[in-house]
């Protein structure tokens, strides 16, 4: 194995593009090092991107925030303006692993790991986050939702690196939230999860909503029936019940050591219901 820590993105892409064997990009390393330890991958090349300019920066941009690919969860949580704008995305990120893992883990890494149970991804998808990808053929933008294509697989092509994730500006009276179900209070992988981002008008009526589910399908689900269930409502009990039912109906989970199909299906709806109420409250709605 070779370890490189280039100073420019061009060098990083050059290294990755010319590597004939398996390579891995290293940002926080909280997935890559576990895979190395368990010998799940035996890469020829590791490229540490943390020394590349901008990778560790959170930058205000057009009313939103650009989050460098090597920004840790802890750094996101310490950024008051980011927390104020996208509290749901930040709380999703901060749920990953322990305080120690938070010191290293990144949004981009959580995305590229392409786990169906990744915590930050449903929140980013609900937020319409966009990844900036640099590769041998230049730079492109890609909605976060289109990056994971199946468990452990992404749509990135050889030599491509996510350099940042953009969380867009949002109207006033908006809020987002993320909840997951785990058997303990911490340190587990999500058994089911939900991200909700919504905007309300001055009457407290939901005008826009986006609802996503994690760990209940090979990739994150966007549940249009759930968002339409609450648009035009003040999250009255009937609307919430419809959202919950729509979420459960959308689930296509597996049975495994972490949960059953039945359990995931039911709790995904419960998580979505509770997340919607939190997001509504954060948007300034009162019930």
């Amino acid at each position: 194995m070779r370890f490189e820590s280039p100073d420019t993105i061009e060098q990083a892409i050059g290294l990755l593009n010319t590597c004939e064997g398996t390579s891995r990009v290293l940002a926080g390393g909280t997935d890559v090092l576990v895979q190395l330890r368990l010998a799940l991958v035996e890469p020829e090349l590791i490229v540490d991107i943390k020394h590349i300019a901008g990778m560790r920066d959170i930058t205000a941009e057009d009313g939103g925030f650009r989050i460098g690919a090597a920004v840790s969860g802890a750094e996101m949580g310490e950024h008051a303006d980011l927390v104020a704008l996208w509290p749901g995305v930040v709380e999703a990120m901060e749920l990953i692993g322990s305080t120690q893992v938070q010191g290293r883990a990144t949004l981009a890494g959580n995305l590229c790991n392409a786990s169906p149970a990744a915590d930050s991804v449903p929140a980013m998808v609900a937020a319409n986050a966009v990844a900036t990808i640099v590769g041998p053929n230049g730079t492109r933008e890609c909605p976060v939702a289109d990056i994971p294509v199946s468990p452990s697989k992404t749509s990135l092509t050889k030599g491509e690196v996510i350099t940042s994730i953009y969380l867009p500006a949002r109207p006033d009276n908006s809020g987002d939230a993320y909840l997951r179900f785990i058997p303990r209070t911490e340190m587990d992988i999500a058994v089911s999860s939900a991200g909700v981002s919504l905007t309300i008008n001055c009457d407290g009526v939901v005008t826009q909503a986006r609802v996503s589910l994690g760990a209940v399908a090979p990739t994150v689900l966007v549940v249009e029936d759930a968002s339409s269930a609450i648009i035009g409502t003040k999250l009255e009990d009937a609307a919430i019940a419809t959202l919950q039912a729509a979420c459960s109906a959308a689930c296509n989970p597996i049975d495994d050591k972490r949960g059953t199909v039945e359990f995931r299906t039911k709790t995904a709806g419960v998580m979505a219901k509770r997340a919607a109420l939190i997001a509504y409250s954060r948007a300034g709605g009162s019930k």
């Binding site: 909280t30 090092l33 540490d48 322990s98 120690q100 010191g103 290293r104």
Partner: peptide
């Protein structure tokens, strides 16, 4: 990274040293 017994501070930031090259 599941047990924390290897915790160290790296540039003042709490990390698991088993998850740092």
């Amino acid at each position: 990274g599941d047990c924390g017994a290897c915790s160290v501070a790296l540039d003042g930031r709490l990390v698991c040293s088993c998850l740092v090259l």
